[in-house]
């Protein structure tokens, strides 16, 4: 039977899950010797809360359940944390995780909706996920079952003009079952997001376009869960949560240099072991 996942979440339980997903993201990318672990870590609270914090309504054993809430990882390069969440939920087998990026594996470098159950959209070309999610949310509205679509974008991703096309259309149609999050980790590929293309005041920009906006600490459980619960109370507008995060959260090695040196770069096996211990002991 489709049901929400668990009762009132307990942040200690969520933190245990989050650590597992973070550790998987590191192990998987280190084994693949490629990928984007730092981009997974900044989004780890958001993804954990959505799947395991009683936020999304879904049936892990039946990922195609038509009335499900949907999650689109628009910043598709953070695929490992999505795959780890799907394994934690039980949609895919955990023993597939370490096949990330291998030929023949459905766990491709970026999510492929045609190959892996539970993946709602094929992403990897940044800027398209919000539009896809908008279409999904409008489709869900036509279905009339009260389902929602959640989407996580990168902050650099918001540079794309298509994002703002979707922002305007979402406001026009008052798509209040669309809940978008920006993983505001302040870095993109070529360095500090502010130096690549200034986006501040981000929250005000979305608000000026007619969205309900929340500005939160993306690594504070109370803030993340509170914002997502509030966002589920529809008020006629789509919601944007600007989640301030740290690229490489929990790993000193990356936090020392979250700029271009650690975008799209896996940890070495030694660095990975140190990082995993650091996460476990935190």
């Amino acid at each position: 039977m489709p049901q929400t996942n668990g009762a009132a979440p307990e942040t200690a339980r969520l933190e245990e899950i989050r650590k597992r997903l973070a550790i998987w993201s590191i192990r998987m990318t280190t084994k693949a010797a490629s990928g984007h672990p730092s981009s997974c870590l900044s989004a780890s609270h958001l993804v954990t809360a959505l799947y395991f914090g009683d936020i999304m309504r879904y049936d892990a054993a039946n990922p195609d359940w038509p009335q499900r809430d949907r999650f689109v990882l628009s910043k598709g390069h953070a695929a490992p944390i999505l795959y780890a969440a799907l394994a934690e939920a039980g949609t895919i087998e955990e023993n597939r995780l370490m096949s990330l990026r291998e030929i023949g594996s459905a766990l491709e470098g970026h999510p492929n909706t045609r190959r892996l159950p539970g993946v709602e959209a094929s992403t990897g070309s940044l800027g398209q996920g919000l539009s896809i999610s908008l279409g999904m949310a409008m489709g869900q509205r036509l279905d009339g079952a009260g389902a929602r679509t959640f989407v996580v974008m990168g902050d650099g991703e918001v540079d794309e003009g298509q994002v703002w096309e979707a922002v305007m259309a979402g406001a026009k149609y008052g798509v209040d079952n669309l809940i978008a999050m920006v993983d505001r980790n302040d870095f993109q590929q070529m360095g500090a997001a502010d130096s690549v293309l200034p986006l501040d005041p981000m929250a005000l920009k979305f608000a000026a376009f007619g969205w309900r906006v929340m500005d939160i600490d993306g690594h504070d459980w109370k803030a993340v869960l509170g914002a997502l619960r509030e966002a589920k109370v529809a008020d006629g507008r789509p919601t944007l949560i600007v989640a301030h995060t740290k690229k490489g959260y929990g790993v000193t090695r990356i936090l020392e240099d979250p700029g271009n040196k650690f975008h799209g770069v896996p940890l070495s096996p030694d660095e990975a072991e140190t990082a995993i211990q650091e996460i476990e002991n935190a």
Partner: peptide, 15 residues
């Protein structure tokens, strides 16, 4: 651009 991706989202809900 938004039109095309949005259409894909609508299609993903069985339309």
């Amino acid at each position: 651009s938004n039109m095309v991706s949005m259409a894909a989202g609508l299609a993903a809900t069985g339309r």
